Amino acid sequence: MKTSAPKSGPDTDQMRLVAIPRLAAGGRWRVEAMRSLSEGCFLWFTKGQGRITVAGQTRGYTANNAIYIPPGVMHGFEVGPQVFGTAVFFGKSSTVTLPAEPLHLRIREVHAQQEVNVTLDMIQREMDSDTPAHDRATRHYLGLLGVWLERQASKASADAPRPDAAKRLVARFTDLLEKEFRRGKGVGELACDLGVTATHLTRCCRETCGRSAIDLLQDRRIFEARKLLLETNTPVGQIGSSLGFASAAYFTRAFQHLTGVSPTAFRRTI
């Protein structure tokens, strides 16, 4: 399905549909690194497979998987060369009723697969249209997408196991990490805030997503650093300080360890 930026409209200025492969056009780190968005995001995979981490839980995805990520929820996912699908970004001011919690749905019914494909096609068609009331039609189709998500989630909830203690702890950790990653707190301090030891927190992180707590923390901080290096003229040292690094030298070492290049060299890639 062809995707493009929407035309202007009362509620659709910030809403957009993007082909999933295009999300990694500026580098795979843009989708694979841990980060959160200030808007809801719906991912509909139509081909390929990979892994996605949402709120500290890693699961495999394949064709006909629907994933909803609420605003502020930390996530990252693989986008290989054979992965196709559509990402819907609802915009910060969206009035669509959407789930409060993340969803990962495996849509097996052909009718449900067809329904979401038709809805996405109609959203794109109205966004590309110059006909009267196309903006209002876009909002209505987005509402239908929200209804589709709610119904599919309701069907899946009966069979969904309750998250175990490790998953609940790591979800709390990623939520706290998203709020605190700029303050320079280490894993020990974050674990203390959660009422557990750093060792226990790291064990749970490895169990739910195959990564340590420090890996998640550094990935989140370095993702933000890369964005600031590419999208602003803020001096390198000031970026490191704003993300809680104790010194410019420590920031440079951490950045180079994760990316293979220095912050200054990375900025020159623009």
Rank of each mutant, 00 (worst) to 15 (best):
T3I: 01
S4L: 04
P6N: 14
P6W: 13
P6M: 12
K7Y: 02
K7D: 01
K7T: 02
K7R: 12
G9Q: 09
D11T: 15
R16H: 12
P21Q: 05
G26W: 05
R30M: 09
S36Y: 09
L37H: 14
E39Q: 05
E39M: 04
W44E: 02
W44P: 03
F45T: 03
F45G: 02
T46P: 01
K47W: 02
K47M: 13
Q49M: 05
Q49A: 14
G50A: 07
G50T: 08
I52W: 02
T53S: 03
A55C: 04
A55S: 11
T62H: 13
N64L: 00
N65M: 13
Y68R: 06
V73T: 09
F77I: 08
E78K: 07
V79Q: 04
P81L: 11
T86W: 11
V88Q: 03
F89P: 05
K92A: 14
S94F: 00
V96H: 09
V96K: 07
E109H: 10
H111E: 15
V116G: 01
T119K: 08
L120I: 15
D121R: 09
D121P: 03
I123S: 05
Q124M: 10
R125H: 12
R125P: 01
P132E: 08
P132C: 09
H134I: 03
R136G: 11
H140E: 14
L144Y: 12
L145E: 05
W148L: 13
A153E: 09
P161L: 06
D164L: 11
D164K: 03
L169K: 03
V170F: 10
K179M: 13
R183M: 08
A191V: 11
G195R: 04
G195F: 10
H200E: 11
S212F: 08
S212R: 06
D215Q: 13
R221L: 06
R221W: 06
E224R: 13
L230S: 13
T232Y: 12
I239F: 10
G240W: 06
L243C: 13
F245S: 01
F245P: 07
S247L: 12
